[in-house]
Nucleic acid binder design. Structure first.
Lengths: 136, 136
DNA sequence: CTTCTGTACTGTGTGCATTAGTACAGTAGG
DNA sequence: CCTACTGTACTAATGCACACAGTACAGAAG
């Protein structure tokens, strides 16, 4: 069970986000969309670093963040695995960060002078990729 | 016409955004929501800097960005004024940046494990502050 | 014992944000 | 003309986040 499998993570040099954040976002999305099932094993720190031609520390930092957030579970000497879902943040903290995200998006829409209805519909479509989480 | 008026801009020390971006976002939102009318004069670089207890260079940088984006218009020796609206970015660039914003928001929703429907409804409410721009 | 795994350090270099200080150009009013 | 306001353009120094480089240690598997 839980074969390591390839796990394609893309790192774009043109992406303004720091590399570690790209990894965090990438892995998190794969978990959220169900592409990475609970219990699946992730590539090793050194392995992924070599595959992406980046520093192992950068991968370790990303994995550490994902572990701290509860998405991954580490077993010393074995590897990292997708953890079983659980409540990670307090509701207050969740709402606060959601507020920030909403405000940031509104700022972008205003900055681009983008039609709000169009922005909303694009977002609705993009949100469909997130797993329904019915069986949770 | 176009009195300088107080123009309350808030700078939060706890805000993770750089100060100049807070000013840019703040001014842009006041324009987008109609709180700042076309032709209105903005506080002077040195005046706003003193009011916010920050460096004049930081204010100047923010104003320069807003001018470059077409939100403001500068008249040497006179001051800065809200410019008349015009198309600033190419449609391709606009769409590209909108894509980034959408992806970033989806990442946040996934990271917080926030119910997508709830996120969407909160965003819809927040977008209502943007001016209808019927007369454009 | 060797080799894989994650984890924890100490540095080093780079780029960005901010502050500080100075200087120059245009406008208005005495 | 002179002074005081406006925006603008530099340089220099500091602090911080990010990534890289190298080394080291602990647990698991053969």
């Amino acid at each position: 069970m839980a074969r390591t499998q390839a796990l394609l993570i893309q790192i774009a040099t043109g992406d303004p986000r720091p590399i570690s954040k790209q990894i965090v976002d990438g892995v998190r999305m794969k978990i959220a969309t169900g592409e990475l099932a609970v219990g699946a094993q992730l590539p090793s720190v050194r392995g992924l670093a070599q595959q992406l031609t980046i520093n192992p520390n950068t991968v370790a930092k990303a994995y550490a963040e994902l572990t701290g957030e509860g998405w991954l579970e580490s077993r010393q000497g074995l590897g990292l695995y997708v953890a079983t879902p659980r409540q990670r943040l307090s509701n207050a903290e969740r709402d606060r960060r959601m507020d920030e995200a909403v405000q940031g998006f509104v700022h972008e829409v205003a900055a681009l002078d983008y039609p709000p209805e169009r922005a909303l519909s694009r977002l609705e479509r993009a949100l469909r990729v997130l797993a329904p989480k019915k069986t949770a």
